[in-house]
Amino acid sequence: MADNSENKSGSGDCGIVIRDDWPGYSLDLFTYPQHYSEDLECVYIPHGVIMDRTERLARNIMDDLGDHDIVVLCVLKGGYQFCADLVERIKTLNRNSSKTLPMSVDFIRLKSYLNDQSTEDLHIIGAENLSVLSGKNVLIVEVIVDTGKTMKTLLNHVEGFRPKMIKVAGLLVKRVPNGPGCLPDYVGFEIPNRFVVGYALDYNEYFRDLNHICVISESGKQKYKV
């Protein structure tokens, strides 16, 4: 992947840029659940690379927000793994850094996808409990941003509770037409417009049990279509 990406470290950037011609890695080079052997095209971002990039994002967040109390708002369901790993790495920095970042964690669920298409029908579950964000520094943690419309809607909703500050960490930003409407402050990877699964990203609730981020095959889409 190194030959097909550009590393732009630091916060407020577009992260590691994976170019359109990146073919991914052969599935034969990695271990993964064999019940998905016919459902994937390739390993797009290996789990170890995700972990290393997440560690760097944690350091950037600590550099920017250290010594401030924050509320981490995890966007479910897809964001649970990224959020857990990011928080764990911030906790490690808390133990081994001159700065500290006291955290509490809250959760919200967004649902807008049917099969591989984002719909206009956005459901925000848990929104009624966000009054705890009033006057707080908020870090929204989302696993993927494509058009940015969903994130913009969520930001508008969170702003209604009058937090002191809002930052967004997104593991993936997808290059799509007319997007993103909202770019995260901390970005792991910028990826082409391909439908990816794994690392808690799903296709109709399947593939959350896959550690790597992979490209789903056309046969996989048909197999799990609803």
Rank of each mutant, 00 (worst) to 15 (best):
T31Q: 15
V17G: 03
E38D: 10
N137K: 03
E205S: 11
Y32N: 08
G135D: 13
N193Q: 08
A2C: 12
G220Q: 12
N137Q: 10
G24F: 12
K225W: 03
A127Y: 04
E142L: 09
L65Q: 04
D28I: 06
V196Y: 05
Y36K: 03
V49S: 14
E190Q: 14
M103E: 04
R89H: 14
L122D: 04
S98F: 14
T147I: 09
L29G: 01
E128I: 01
E88I: 00
E88C: 11
P180L: 06
P180A: 13
P46S: 07
Y206F: 12
Y206K: 15
G220A: 03
L65P: 08
V71S: 07
E190L: 13
L154E: 07
V87L: 15
S26I: 04
L110N: 02
R162C: 10
F82A: 14
S219M: 02
R208N: 11
Y203K: 01
P163Q: 07
Q222A: 15
G15E: 01
N178Y: 01
V143D: 15
L76V: 07
C182E: 11
D67V: 03
I18G: 04
L110W: 01
P102G: 09
G78P: 01
N211L: 11
G179W: 00
D202Q: 00
A200F: 00
D21V: 07
G15K: 09
V71D: 05
F82S: 04
P33F: 11
H157A: 13
K174W: 01
V168P: 07
N96M: 09
L133A: 05
G135H: 06
H68S: 09
F207K: 05
Y32D: 06
D39E: 09
I18P: 01
E128R: 02
D20F: 05
S131P: 00
S112I: 00
L172P: 01
K77P: 01
I144D: 05
A127W: 02
F195C: 02
